[in-house]
């Protein structure tokens, strides 16, 4: 069975870029605090979503609507409105994390396919079976914490399709189980759909160099000439005992290209690309490179090339211009 390529689309031009460059599916979010990439200028109105879905369907691609926050009583109605819109517009699947919302979707729109979001934190087959049994979930996106062996063993124990991250920024924490951002800023992925939000970022030029703060907390300091990255708080440099270093994670990207054949052999159904906040040009390049990599693995690449060259090309686009196999590769852990 071939691997499906699932690409991010934060805007309509990014959706077109993904679909036109070989994505099998794209995932989008609606405006408002209902999805985990709640950044200014991003996401879809209902009419943009309708246009995007039509464009994708004309070219044989699917559109998944992500609604992966955990709504509070105050945002519940906005969240269920998104579910109703997605159903009305003919989305191919809903990506949900919240069990209450899954109950709502399964009851109101029984024909609509449900995917368990990575924010659902399901890292074992029993958790996934819970969502299948309760809500008929058809696919689960795994948090970026399992080794390759763990992924393949999990697949042997569940009938639910498994989607894993293949490329993009790396969460070092279990998605859906990280409150670091709300601890520092009051806004978190689970509650507001944001991590280390831009409104809390402050850059300072000091005699010690340029430094970044998040809600006043110093995340990193850069020597003159040193490349400065966005201050995602788990990728800052901190002091532990007497050492100052990237105590949680380096600013690096996940790139599982080297693992594609093994993931395919292990029964993974889809590869997901992170980055709904990225530009259409980035989405086009990454989609096109991953399309070629998948075709190469399936023995169907007409353009020649090899995985090594594709990896190098992807590194050029990666955060920190370096990559890791992340948790797939045990020593990273």
């Amino acid at each position: 069975m071939s691997l499906e390529l699932v690409c991010p689309a934060g805007t309509l031009p990014a959706l077109r870029a993904a679909v036109d460059n070989g994505a099998d599916a794209v995932y989008i979010g609606f405006r408002g605090a209902t999805n985990a990439r709640n950044f200014p200028g991003l996401n879809f109105s209902e009419s943009e979503a309708a246009t995007g879905i039509a464009h994708a369907h004309e070219r044989g691609a699917r559109v998944f609507v992500a609604l992966n926050v955990y709504p509070s009583p105050a945002t519940w109605d906005a969240a269920t409105a998104v579910i109703d819109s997605a159903a009305r517009l003919g989305a191919d699947a809903l990506i949900l994390a919240d069990p209450g919302l899954m109950r709502y979707a399964a009851d109101r729109h029984p024909g609509l396919r449900l995917h368990l979001s990575v924010q659902g934190s399901a890292t074992n087959w029993r958790a996934i079976e819970f969502y299948r049994h309760e809500f008929g979930v058809r696919r689960a996106v795994l948090p970026r914490v399992l080794s390759l062996t763990q992924v393949t063993r999990l697949i042997e124990r569940t009938a639910v399709e498994i989607e894993v991250f293949g490329f993009g920024s790396l969460c070092v924490m279990v998605e859906g189980r990280c409150a670091l951002s709300s601890y520092a800023t009051g806004h978190s992925p689970n509650t507001q759909g944001v991590c280390s939000p831009a409104h809390a970022v402050r850059w300072e030029e000091t005699t010690d160099g340029r430094q970044s703060r998040l809600n006043g907390i110093l995340i990193d300091r850069y020597a003159p000439g040193e490349a400065a990255g966005y201050p995602t708080l788990c990728k800052g440099r901190f002091r532990v005992n007497d050492a100052v270093f990237h105590a949680l994670e380096e600013p690096t990207s996940l790139n599982a290209l080297d693992m594609l054949p093994a993931l395919m052999a292990g029964g993974v159904r889809a590869i997901k690309v992170e980055g709904r906040q990225r530009s259409p040009a980035y989405v086009a390049q990454v989609t096109s490179l991953l399309r070629r990599a998948l075709d190469l693995c399936a023995g169907a690449d007409a353009g020649g090339g090899n995985i090594g060259a594709l990896t190098e090309a992807l590194d050029e686009l990666a955060e920190g211009r370096t990559h890791t196999l992340g948790a797939y590769h045990r020593p990273w852990q």
Partner: peptide, 12 residues
């Protein structure tokens, strides 16, 4: 606040 596959104590 958070869980990871990585052991940060060992890493430190």
């Amino acid at each position: 606040l958070a869980f990871s596959a990585r052991c940060f104590t060992a890493r430190s």
